[in-house]
Write a protein that binds this DNA or RNA. Structure first.
Length: 609
RNA sequence: GGUCCCGUAGCUCAACUGGAUAGAGCAGCUGCCUUCUAAGCAGCAGGUUACAGGUUCGAGUCCUGUCGGGAUCGCCA
C-alpha cells in the first residue's frame, strides 16, 4: 500500500471501466463504486481497481469479473497495456507513453500542481495568530501562525482568493495590568532605554503585576480573608479595574499610555512575524470591533434573539441546540469575548463579502465557535445566510516532553527564544559538518536561518492540525530522516547536479529534450514519475482538509524517492546522452515540485548546503 | 457530572476517508564514500492498531460498551 501516491489517471480509468462493465455485463454501476487505488508495490501494476465494490451488481465472481474488465481495457484504448487479477483486485499497468506525456505536460507548466484563480469567486477570509498584547508570542502561537499562513497558501494554490487577517486583542483588563505595573515600578523604562524587545517589556510588567498582586493577596489572606474575598478587596485589582473603566470612558492619560505600550508590543510582534515569515492583508483590533458587537447586541435584543436579565446582563438561550445559556453582555454593559467576535464577523463581511471565513484557533475554543455559529445563524440582518460560511480550523495543543506548557510554572516556550535557539543550533551543526567554506559570509548566515526555520516549520506542520502534538526541542532541530533539512538537502543536491549539467556541453540542452524519446524507465524512475505526477492531487487534498500535513508528507516522500533514485543511478553519464537528459529532466521536475510544495509550508530551499 | 476530542512499534508521526501482508523517521544493531553533496542509501529487529462485542466479501477506519488521557461547561480571552 503506497499511501502517498495519488491516482493520476483516475478520471480516464473510471470512464473506461464503466465502459468495460457495460460491454461485458450490460449494467451501469454508480461511478462512486469504482474504487481505484495505487497498486501495492508487491504486485505488478500501477493502478488497482477494487472489483468487490460492484461484484454484487455484476452477479459474477470477483476474479472472473476482474479478468473480463482487464481484458477489455487492454483490447480497447491504449491507456492500459497489461493487467493481472489477484483475488478481487484488478491490477492495471498504465502504458509507458502516458507517463511520459504526463511528465512532459508537467515540465511545460510552470505552475504545475496549482489551480488558476476562479474569476468572480468571493474571497476566503482566514483569521490566524490573534495575539493578546500583554505578552510575547509563545510556542502555541507558532503552531497557530505557521498553520494559518500555510493553509492560506494552500487555498491560494487551489485557486481561491484568500485574505489573511489578524485580530489583535488589544484591550481589556490584562493590558491594564501591564500598564499599572509599569506606572508603579517602571521608572519610565522603554524598549530603547532597556534594550528589551517591546512585547517582552510589556510581558515583564504583566509578570510584575502578577507578583505584586500575589504578595498583596497573601497579606490579605494572612489577615483571615478567603482567596476570593482577597481578590475583591485587593487595591491592585481595584486600580486595574478602575483603569479599565477610565480606558472605556476615553480618559486621555490612560489612552495615551495604552497606545504607547501597545506600540511597543506591535513592534515586537512585527519582528517575530517577520522571523516566522507570516503576514496579513488586514489587521483588526478588538478595541474597534467590540463597539460593533455591542451595537449588534442591541439589535438582537430588539429582535428577541437575546434577552435581558433583571441585573441588566444580556443572554442567549441555546438549550434548543443542546447547549446552555450564554452571557452576551455583562451587567455593567461591558462586552465579553463573544460580543466582539460577533462584531468582528460582521465588519469582515462588510469588508470582504466572503464565501468562507476560517478561524484558526485552538481546540480549547471548540465550544466558543459552536456558540458563535449558532448566534450568527439566529441573528437576522443579513447574518443567517452566511453562518454556514464560518469554519473553525481547530488545532490541538502543543505539549512539551515535560507535559503541558504552564505560565504559572514558567514552562512556556517563548517564540523568539525558540527561533534563536534553532538558528544557533543549526549553525553549530553546520559548522561541525564543515561543508561550507566561508562561515562568516552573509550567505552562510542566511543558510543557517533557512535551515533552522525549515526544520521548525516542517516539524510543526507535518502533524495533522487537529491532533495534539509534542514539541521535543531535541527532535525539532534534527536534520536526519523525516525532517525539513532532509528535504532541503535533497533539493540542494539536485540543484548541484543541474549546475554541473548546465556547464557540461554534451547534456546542456537537456531542457529542450522531448522526454518520450527516452526508451527506458527503470523502477526507481517510474516510482518517482508516478509520485511527482500526483502532486496536484496532494495540493487538492490538503486544501479540502485544510491540512498542511498532507503537503508535508507528500514532499517528504518525494525527497525520499529522489534520494533512492539518486543513489542507485548516475544522472549525468557522458556515454549515455539520452538517459542523462531524461534523468536531468526528471530532476528538474522533482526540484520544482519540492520547491512548490515546501513553499506551501513556508519553507525556503537552499541552492547548496 | 453533561458535552466534545484523542488512544497505532520503546519514542514521534503516516495509512488516499471501508480494501491486499498497518507504513516512515528517531533510538538500537550491521553494511556502503578515489565516481553527480554520506545532512545520503541499504539491511536487521521492533505491532493482538487500549480492551470487549457488533455491522460485511473486507474494519486502525463505521456502531455500542468498557478502560485510559485531554479539552470545555466563567459576567476570562
Amino acid at each position: 500500500m503506497l499511501t502517498l501516491t495519488r491516482m493520476v489517471f483516475e478520471k480516464q480509468l473510471t470512464g473506461s471501466i464503466l465502459q468495460a462493465v457495460r460491454a461485458e455485463f450490460g449494467v451501469d454501476p454508480d461511478p462512486a463504486r469504482i474504487v481505484l487505488q495505487h497498486t501495492n508495490p508487491d504486485f505488478e501494476g500501477d493502478v488497482t481497481f477494487v472489483v468487490f465494490g460492484i461484484v454484487k451488481q455484476l452477479k459474477a465472481a470477483p476474479e472472473e469479473a476482474g479478468r473480463k474488465i482487464g481484458e477489455f481495457l487492454v483490447a480497447n484504448g491504449d491507456l492500459v497495456e497489461g493487467y493481472s487479477v489477484v483475488k478481487g483486485f484488478l491490477n492495471l499497468l498504465i502504458a509507458r507513453q502516458h507517463w511520459m506525456a504526463a511528465m512532459q505536460k508537467a515540465l511545460m507548466d510552470p505552475a504545475f500542481g496549482t489551480r488558476k484563480p476562479e474569476p468572480d469567486a468571493h474571497p476566503v477570509v482566514i483569521e490566524y495568530s490573534s495575539p493578546n498584547t500583554n505578552k510575547p508570542l509563545h510556542l502555541g502561537h507558532i503552531r497557530n501562525n505557521l498553520l494559518g499562513w500555510s493553509v492560506a497558501e494552500i487555498l491560494k494554490a487551489n485557486g481561491q482568493d484568500v485574505r489573511k487577517v489578524n485580530l489583535v486583542n488589544d484591550r481589556g483588563i490584562h493590558i491594564c495590568k501591564s500598564m499599572l505595573a509599569w506606572q508603579k515600578t517602571g521608572n519610565g523604562e522603554t524598549p530603547e532605554s532597556s534594550g528589551i524587545k517591546g512585547d517582552h517589556l510589556a510581558g515583564k510588567y504583566y509578570v510584575a503585576f502578577d507578583r505584586m498582586l500575589k504578595e498583596e493577596l497573601a497579606g490579605l489572606v494572612k489577615k483571615g480573608m478567603s482567596g476570593e474575598e482577597a481578590m475583591k478587596k485587593s487595591t491592585l485589582m481595584e486600580e486595574a479595574r478602575e483603569m479599565l473603566r477610565r480606558w472605556e470612558a476615553g480618559d486621555p492619560g490612560v489612552r495615551e499610555l495604552w497606545k504607547r505600550m501597545n506600540g511597543w508590543v506591535y513592534e515586537g510582534f512585527d519582528s517575530t512575524y517577520k522571523a516566522l515569515g507570516v503576514d496579513f492583508d488586514k489587521i483588526y483590533y478588538e478595541s474597534d470591533t467590540y463597539v460593533e458587537g455591542k451595537k449588534i447586541v442591541q439589535e438582537g435584543l430588539a429582535e428577541k434573539v437575546f434577552y435581558r436579565r433583571p441585573d441588566g446582563s444580556v443572554w442567549i438561550d441555546l438549550t434548543a441546540d443542546k447547549l446552555d445559556e450564554k452571557v452576551i453582555l455583562r451587567a455593567d454593559g461591558t462586552s465579553v469575548y463573544i460580543t466582539q467576535d460577533i462584531g468582528t464577523a460582521r465588519l469582515r463581511y462588510d469588508d470582504f463579502s466572503f464565501s468562507r471565513m476560517i478561524y484558526v484557533v485552538g481546540n480549547e475554543q471548540d465550544y466558543h465557535f459552536r456558540v458563535l455559529k449558532i448566534i450568527i445563524s439566529r441573528l437576522g440582518m443579513g447574518f443567517s445566510e452566511w453562518s454556514d460560511a464560518i469554519e473553525h480550523l481547530s488545532y490541538g495543543m502543543v505539549d512539551l516532553p515535560s507535559g503541558k506548557m504552564k505560565s504559572r510554572e514558567g514552562t512556556v516556550v517563548d517564540a523568539d527564544d525558540l527561533i534563536e535557539g534553532m538558528r544557533s543550533e543549526t549553525e553549530a551543526r553546520t559548522r561541525e559538518l564543515g561543508k561550507i567554506g566561508d562561515f562568516e559570509s552573509v550567505e552562510a548566515h542566511e543558510l543557517y536561518r533557512v535551515l533552522a526555520m525549515g526544520a521548525l516549520k516542517y516539524y510543526i506542520l507535518k502533524v495533522d492540525p487537529e491532533k495534539r502534538m509534542l514539541y521535543n526541542p531535541e527532535e525539532s532541530i534534527d536534520i536526519h530522516g523525516n525532517t525539513g533539512p532532509f528535504i532541503q538537502y535533497a533539493y540542494a543536491r539536485i540543484r548541484s547536479v543541474l549546475r554541473k549539467a548546465d556547464a557540461t556541453e554534451q547534456v546542456a540542452g537537456y531542457a529542450s529534450m522531448e522526454v518520450s524519446s527516452y526508451e527506458g524507465m527503470n523502477e526507481k524512475e517510474k516510482t518517482l514519475v508516478c509520485h511527482l505526477a500526483g502532486y496536484p492531487d496532494a495540493v487538492r487534498e490538503a486544501g479540502e482538509k485544510l491540512s498542511p500535513a498532507v503537503v508535508a508528507h507528500y514532499v517528504y516522500e518525494a525527497a525520499r524517492l529522489y534520494n533512492q533514485f539518486y543513489h542507485d543511478h548516475t544522472i549525468v553519464d557522458p556515454a549515455r546522452e539520452n538517459t542523462s537528459m531524461f534523468r536531468l529532466q526528471l530532476s528538474v521536475w522533482a526540484a520544482r515540485v519540492m520547491a512548490s510544495a515546501t513553499h506551501l509550508l513556508g519553507m525556503e530551499m537552499p541552492e547548496r548546503m
